[in-house]
């Protein structure tokens, strides 16, 4: 696991967050929410600090982080690309779209491009099945995406 260095200031902010929740391990989920909004993601070092502050095991913190899908241990890109792999999207070729994103961005699912611009993730049904296959970039929804439309989407953010 690659070590990242958290700045002293950020660490203090994190400890303050724990303190606002009285360093109560029962508040772990809330602490993690705050921490993720502060840092954008929850790297291992951060989880270690939270465990220490709340006096619970790191394994337990990691258990909670991996249980809820809205927590992430990877830094998101500036433009997070999410591809729906729900049944409707899947049937209409979402996987080919995903392959095309991987090929053009040269990253795997869960990774971020070296310039920090794009990250790639998959979703279950986002409730827009009529538009399948669906791709999200940040908040923006793209419907009926075909593999040959991928380049255009990327170009939109590459200016």
């Amino acid at each position: 696991m690659a070590k990242i260095k958290l700045s002293e200031k950020k660490i203090q902010e994190l400890k303050d967050v724990c303190k606002t929740f009285n360093n109560d391990k029962g508040e772990l989920i809330n602490v993690l929410h705050k921490a993720q909004s502060l840092f954008g993601y929850l790297p291992a070092e951060l989880q270690e600090i939270i465990a220490k502050e709340l006096n619970c095991s790191v394994a337990h913190v990691y258990g909670v982080v991996t249980f809820y899908s809205y927590f992430t241990m990877l830094p998101k890109g500036k433009h997070p690309v999410s591809i729906c792999l729900g049944t409707a999207c899947y049937v209409r070729g979402a996987e080919k779209v995903l392959e095309e994103f991987k090929r053009q961005l040269k990253i795997q699912v869960g990774e971020t491009t070296p310039d920090g611009k794009f990250s790639l993730s998959c979703l279950r049904c986002v409730g827009a099945c009529g538009l399948a296959p669906v791709v999200l970039v940040g908040e923006k929804v793209y419907g009926r995406v075909a593999p040959d439309g991928v380049a255009d989407i990327i170009a939109e953010y590459n200016t």
Partner: peptide, 22 residues
């Protein structure tokens, strides 16, 4: 009170493992 193990991940992927699945 060692805390070496915890249930991690969910559903089909759930396992009992040390932190960060080390």
């Amino acid at each position: 009170t060692v805390g070496a193990l915890s249930a991690v991940n969910r559903g089909f992927m759930a396992v009992v493992a040390p932190a960060f699945e080390m």
